[in-house]
Amino acid sequence: MDFDLQWLLLGLPLAFAFGWLASRLDLRQWKREQKDSPKAYYKGLNLLLNDQHDKAIDAFIEAVQQDPDTSDLHFALGNLFRRRGEFERAVRVHEHLLNRADLPRTERDRAQHALAQDFMKAGLFDRAEAAYQALEGTAFDTEARLALLTLHERSRDWRAAVEVAQKLENRGTGSFAPRISHYWCEIALEADAKHQPDEADAALEHAREAAPQAARTLVLAGQRAARRGDHAQVLALWGVLMVAHPAAFNLVARDYAQSAIASGGIAAAIDRLRELYDRAPTMDLLEALALLDPAPAHQRTRLLEQLRSHPTLSVAKALITQTDAAAFDTAETKALGDAIGRAAKPLHRYRCAACGFEAQHYFWQCPGCLNWDSYPPQRLEDL
């Protein structure tokens, strides 16, 4: 059978025409998709700015469906889910990004960081730790280490916190010496609770090496010496504290007085306390002086001085207690003292300077905002 060249000449233009038409249709569809996708994206962004999160999520889902390869839309959607507390959906979005083989390395690291944040917010600390550790050596390395430090503090894994803080300091992120000292102090307290004095001694030595003049190491060392009955060591350690951190000395003023009584150094202790009181008078120092010099006349004189210079409800109550019973009816005096005591009770608290969290006891780390050394070591009425 002979091949007719006429059909070939006729078919080539037709094939070219059909190819051209198909390409035009594909191009129009692509342009339409590109036009619709930004529209859905901007609609979602506008809804998000107007705090209409439910509608914004619907708009972003529509945009992702129209353009599933756009990673920015996935990140926006995942972050929205996390902010709303829908952590499982946020994890799915970011895990989907990580499973894409065509994702560039920078976007993959970004997705890993977002996934770690999802786990952290969801309280899945083990998975968050693994996700943050996978970011070592990436552009998110420092952020990941800081997050790991917070995670270890929350889980009270103090040795892991020491390791991360030292790495951050070695990288020039900042000085973490005070926090490292706190971590070792926490380790020492745990060792003491387990009756492991040698381990506690070693931890406290590490704390001193990290921050030699830190207030907490001196307080803790003195408390441990007091439990051993080494009151001379207590006076020596807290004598340094009195000079280096006079405000923090208020935390141990009464215990200092007890050790002075036990060691027979009452006169010297009175002189040192009186000198500190003249510079920075507080009720804690007055109570310590009362232990060392309990004479009613002397106590009344000190209270009157304090009431004139720094009038507080606690001083007023203490002065009423010291008043001679012949001057007032006992029942009236007691009732007046009780009323003043109830009014003064809220002022006996410590308040975090960072978040305002108040507590009856002093904390080296605020239970509210988890900041270290954010509590002034003086009660509200002495500030």
Rank of each mutant, 00 (worst) to 15 (best):
A225C: 06
Q6P: 04
Q233N: 06
R127Q: 07
A248Q: 04
D382P: 04
D198H: 09
R179Y: 08
A226R: 08
W184F: 15
A131C: 00
P377T: 04
R105W: 01
W158N: 10
Q196M: 11
S23Q: 13
G229F: 11
R272Q: 09
D109P: 02
L135H: 01
D271Y: 10
P212E: 08
D271A: 15
A76C: 10
S309Q: 14
L73D: 07
I320K: 14
R28Y: 01
E143N: 11
C352N: 09
D26S: 09
L98V: 00
D36Q: 10
G337N: 12
A221D: 10
R145H: 03
I57G: 03
G19K: 11
A260H: 06
D230T: 00
E86M: 04
L14V: 14
L48M: 12
W184Y: 15
P104A: 06
A139V: 03
F60Q: 06
R274M: 12
Y183R: 05
Q306W: 14
A211G: 11
K43N: 15
L49V: 07
L14M: 12
E287G: 05
R89F: 09
W184L: 11
A221E: 07
H113D: 02
Q258V: 07
P13V: 01
W20H: 02
T312M: 03
Q223N: 08
D102T: 13
A17T: 06
D201P: 06
A354E: 09
E169H: 07
V162T: 07
D118V: 00
H113F: 12
D109A: 05
G123M: 06
L303C: 12
T321M: 15
A225S: 05
A144R: 00
D54S: 07
N99C: 02
R379C: 04
D2I: 02
L77E: 01
H206A: 13
T301R: 15
L97T: 02
L237A: 00
D26F: 12
H182T: 06
A267C: 11
L235A: 05
N170F: 08
S71W: 13
E199L: 13
E205Q: 13
Q65T: 09
A344S: 10
L148H: 01
E163F: 11
L319R: 11
A193K: 05
D36F: 10
S259R: 00
T330R: 15
A244S: 13
A165N: 05
R228K: 05
E86S: 07
E205N: 12
A221Q: 08
L25W: 07
C355E: 01
M1N: 14
L21K: 10
D293Q: 15
L80R: 07
T282S: 03
L8A: 07
A177Q: 10
W184G: 09
L319I: 12
